[in-house]
Design a protein around this nucleic acid. Structure first.
Lengths: 222, 222
DNA sequence: TTCATCAAAATTATGTGTAATTTATAAAAA
DNA sequence: TTTTTATAAATTACACATAATTTTGATGAA
């Protein structure tokens, strides 16, 4: 189709790579197209060197997945990611993560844990952009093999919305340090296969993250 | 577009009525199109008296929502609803229902409760087809006004999948009686605004329903 | 200035036609 | 008989064209 700068940030969460669908989703997740932006099919067709029909179909699919809203006779927009959305997404993740995680605690391999630890090492020296990518990889590792494909997909989509909302914003150092600490505790809980301990940390982890972002958003009147 | 027999069964869960999208979704939810059936765009265009582009777009949206699978260069099919799907759907509902319900316990009006009681009355004399419709209405009442739109939508979609899987099958009388009893207990819990009691009954209710259907499916090797 | 009105431009919605691809069918070879 | 291969039919994918609708912007009246 067209030259596209790679978006390594989101890659694990977006499967197929070379479709208009994934181009647009990448651009949404990386805030190239931001909350509320109009997605004009003719413009997109030009951008991706194709005709409008494939674009419209991609937009319809993204509408079905909740990333795009389509107003009849008025066109498509990036879904509005604002305060309420963030709250809703976090609350859904707070239901999903423990469910997905409890399976992982029992079933994960030592290999998984090693991979997590190497991710954690990278986190310690990462910039905030890199940190978000690593954090995503870390959690993706804990959900991607779960038997409930629908739940995994759900998690993935909500996580992408978070990424889209956050990619404009810098993480502060305190929150990163706190977050790394929480990841460490998760790993040690996994080592002991201690389900309740891990779930406790997880809920705390998501809760803290949620608090951080809702505070951020309310401070900035989004 | 075209004459369509109404599908009162699913109506509350499918919003807009006169689009190709909702026609197809209705037909899926009512098992006119069944699990795995091919959805040939030319045929559908003919059926709904339109061209293939709108059909393709509707199918793409349904793909995004998980009702349809699309294999490139091979076409669309109704998503496969089988044993694993049922398990996954029930497990997701088991996460969602308590979350949505706990809000309803606190916030519902007396009017809501009256409506639920009149639904319950109808249930006592309903055929199994009618029973499913009433049951759906009953639960829809408890979730539709929740502030978390994403969660509500999620519930709605999973519920539709259940309907699609079950619309072929007769409910037995014992299960209906048991189910009515559970509904009664839910209402009385609501009256007392007793969150924990209602949630307990809910988990039991979903659990029983899940058990019934997984048993049914495994017995019939689906 | 502010509001209402109307025409032009932009954009969406969808119908039609064609190339590319896959699937189905049947004949030929093992 | 079974497998392979070739051909025809069906179907998808997409470019293009046109109709319908909305948005924009200019003009004139209050």
């Amino acid at each position: 189709m067209l030259e596209r700068k790679e978006s390594p940030l989101v890659s694990p969460l977006i499967g197929e790579k070379s479709t208009i669908y994934s181009y647009i989703l990448n651009d949404i997740a990386n805030a190239v197209f931001q909350s509320g932006d109009r997605l004009v099919s003719t413009k997109l067709a030009e951008k991706y060197q194709t005709s409008i029909n494939p674009v419209r179909e991609a937009l319809k699919q993204l509408q079905g997945e909740g990333f795009v809203t389509v107003e009849p006779n008025s066109g498509a927009r990036v879904a509005r990611f604002e305060y309420n959305t963030l709250r809703d997404v976090f609350e859904i993740l707070q239901l999903l993560e423990p469910y997905l995680m409890s399976w992982f605690v029992e079933e994960h391999s030592e290999e998984d844990r090693n991979e997590m630890e190497s991710l954690l090492k990278e986190m310690e020296t990462a910039t905030d952009q890199e940190y978000r990518a690593l954090d995503t990889q870390f959690h993706w590792l804990t959900v991607k093999n779960h038997y409930n494909i629908k739940a995994v997909d759900l998690w993935r989509r909500n996580r992408l919305i978070l990424l889209a909302m956050q990619s404009n914003v810098r993480l502060n150092t305190t929150r990163i340090k706190q977050s790394i600490e929480e990841h460490k505790r998760i790993i040690s809980g996994l080592k002991n296969r201690d389900v309740t301990a891990v779930l406790d940390i997880m809920t705390e982890h998501i809760g803290n993250s949620g608090k951080y972002w809702t505070k951020y958003l309310s401070r900035n009147h989004i």
